[in-house]
Amino acid sequence: MDSSPDAPKPTAKEIAAKFRAEIAAPEGGYSPGDRLPPARQLAKQLGVQLMTVQSAYGQLRNEGLVLTQQGRGTFVRDPSTPLGTEPGSSPAFTALSEELSSIHDALRRLGERLDRLEQIVGNETPHAK
C-alpha cells in the first residue's frame, strides 16, 4: 500500500484484503503465530485513523484468520486449531465452538441410548430359524 502523503488513504476493507492475501500467500507472507504490525503503528504509517486499522483487524478476526490478545497484539492463527478454542478468538467463534461441543455431547448420549435400546429389543425378539 502506498503510504505517501498524496496517496488516497486505504479503507479498512482494503487493509484487511492486503493482510488476507499475505496470510494466504504460500511464501513470503504471514505464517501461523506471526504478529501483525501494531494497529497504532500501522495507522500512522498508512496515514489513517487507528479505528480504521482496528476495523480491518476485526474483520480478519471475525473471519477466523487472526487472534487478538489484549496487551500483546494481533497474531495469525493456526488453521489446524479448532476455531473458538484459543484465547483471543472471535466471540462468535467461541460461542459456536461451545454450541458444537454441546451438540456433539448430546449426539453421543443419544447414540448410547440407541445402542441400549437395540440390545433390549434384540434380546426380546425371537430369532428366526
Rank of each mutant, 00 (worst) to 15 (best):
Q54F: 10
Q45S: 11
R35I: 08
E86C: 08
G88Q: 05
V121I: 13
G28M: 03
T11F: 00
E118P: 08
A95D: 09
I15W: 00
K18S: 15
P37N: 00
Y30R: 06
V53C: 03
K13V: 11
P32E: 02
A56E: 08
F75V: 00
K13S: 10
D2E: 02
L107A: 14
T68F: 07
R35F: 05
A92P: 02
D2V: 04
L117P: 03
A39T: 04
A43Q: 06
L107R: 13
S31I: 06
T125Y: 09
Q54I: 06
G122F: 00
A21G: 01
R113T: 13
R77P: 00
R72W: 09
S101Y: 10
G111I: 03
L46K: 04
V66G: 07
R20K: 10
A25S: 11
T94Q: 08
P79L: 01
Q41P: 10
R20E: 09
V76M: 00
R35V: 05
T11D: 01
E112C: 12
E124C: 12
M1F: 06
G64Y: 00
R20S: 04
E14G: 01
A21N: 07
L114Q: 15
A56S: 08
A39V: 01
L60T: 05
L96Q: 10
L96V: 02
L107W: 07
Q41S: 12
L60N: 01
A25E: 09
P38I: 11
Q54P: 03
G84D: 04
E99C: 06
E98I: 12
E99W: 07
R72I: 05
T81Y: 11
Q45L: 13
A92C: 04
T81M: 14
Q70D: 14
K129I: 15
P91S: 06
Q54E: 14
T68N: 12
E118V: 08
L117I: 11
Q59A: 14
Q49M: 12
G88H: 04
I23D: 03
E124F: 12
S89R: 00
R116V: 14
G29P: 04
V121P: 05
E99R: 10
Q49T: 10
H127A: 15
E118A: 13
E124V: 12
A25R: 05
F93K: 01
Q54C: 12
D105L: 11
P38C: 07
P10K: 05
P38M: 15
H127M: 13
G58V: 05
A25P: 02
R109E: 12
K13A: 15
S31R: 14
G64A: 00
T68Q: 12
N62M: 07
N62V: 02
R116H: 14
P37E: 02
T94D: 04
A16Y: 04
T52P: 03
L100R: 12
I103M: 12
S97C: 12
S80T: 15
G58C: 03
Q54R: 13
T94G: 09
P32F: 08
Y30I: 07
G64R: 02
S89I: 00
